[in-house]
Design a binder for these strands. Structure first.
Length: 272
DNA sequence: CTATGGACCTGAATGC
DNA sequence: TGCATTCAGGTCCATA
């Protein structure tokens, strides 16, 4: 479900609710991607000082002790209640605080919660250490982006998904950004000229920033922290539109598989 | 080091 | 209606 915009929207609403709250306990459901071995009272007494984000990871900074890292995987969402309903079969993590309960709901359990005390940043460092540039920050530099692309022989779409050059571009927005830049997803990343890399750089920023501004509502079943479903307005140019006419030129949108993931593009607007 | 395919898990949609 | 197959927004890991 979540790509960077959805995670960012989630971050903002989580921050507004739990920042400054003190943790009372945690409740664990089924194991997520990595089992979290933690007693219910393990974090009790810690305060949530800040809610950050790196790529698609949410970072709950706790004082005095460390960072609680949360990833939503493919199907995860966070909810917040003053008085939460009884946990369902897919509610796998509750953070009980003085402000209310933050709950991770994740049917497929590809998501994760990782606790890293400051003394031992092992797991968090390993997960965050290889991440690429943040696309919505000044850190996302066109020259470095182009240099990174030039070193890769793989199709540009798969390089975008890799997350080691630039983070946060998921399967939907990868297709959308490539369409906006007029670049075919199958082109070897190394073959992109600087001007075309610059167009892609700008397209990534624009597509993601627009989705954030719309509250992450571009995804079909995005569920905000307040429980409201999105507006069900998947306004994609190409994603999920195989066979339908390109909104720019009318040619039928094509679908192909790259690295076991669906890719969509316009054969006319994206020549190479 | 890079590139590729498999793995993890469940539910919804589709097809016969 | 029932049952099998396909597909889904992520990313780590083993293997060449």
């Amino acid at each position: 479900m979540p790509e960077l915009p959805e995670v960012e929207v989630t971050r903002r609403s989580v921050a507004s609710r739990v920042q400054g709250a003190r943790i009372l306990a945690v409740r664990l459901g089924k194991p997520l991607r990595w089992p979290l071995d933690m007693a219910p009272g393990a974090l009790a007494g810690q305060t949530v000082t800040d809610v950050g984000r790196r790529g698609k990871y949410l970072l709950l900074h706790l004082a005095p002790g460390g960072v609680l890292l949360v990833h939503l995987g493919m199907s995860g969402s966070l909810g917040f209640w003053r008085e939460p309903p009884a946990p369902g079969p897919h509610d796998h993590f509750d953070l009980l605080t003085t402000a209310g309960v933050l709950r991770l709901h994740d049917p497929r359990r590809f998501g994760a919660v990782v606790w890293s005390p400051h003394a031992d940043m092992g797991m968090a460092a390993k997960l965050l250490g290889k991440l690429g540039m943040e696309p919505l920050s000044a850190d996302f530099d066109p020259a470095r982006f182009h240099a990174g692309l030039r070193r890769r022989q793989a199709p540009v779409k798969q390089v975008l998904l890799g997350g080691d050059l630039v983070v946060g571009v998921g399967n939907i927005y990868a297709s959308e950004a490539l369409f906006m830049a007029g670049i075919r997803p199958t082109v070897a990343a190394s073959r992109l000229s600087r001007p075309r890399a610059d167009r892609l750089h700008a397209a990534i920023r624009e597509v993601l920033a627009r989705a954030v501004a719309r509250g992450g509502s571009t995804l079909r079943d995005f569920v905000g922290v307040d429980g409201n479903a999105g507006h069900f307005q998947l306004e994609s140019a190409v994603y999920g539109r195989a066979g339908q006419p390109c909104r720019a030129c009318g040619a039928p949108i094509r679908r192909l598989i790259q690295g076991q993931r669906a890719t969509y593009y316009c054969p006319v607007c994206q020549k190479a």
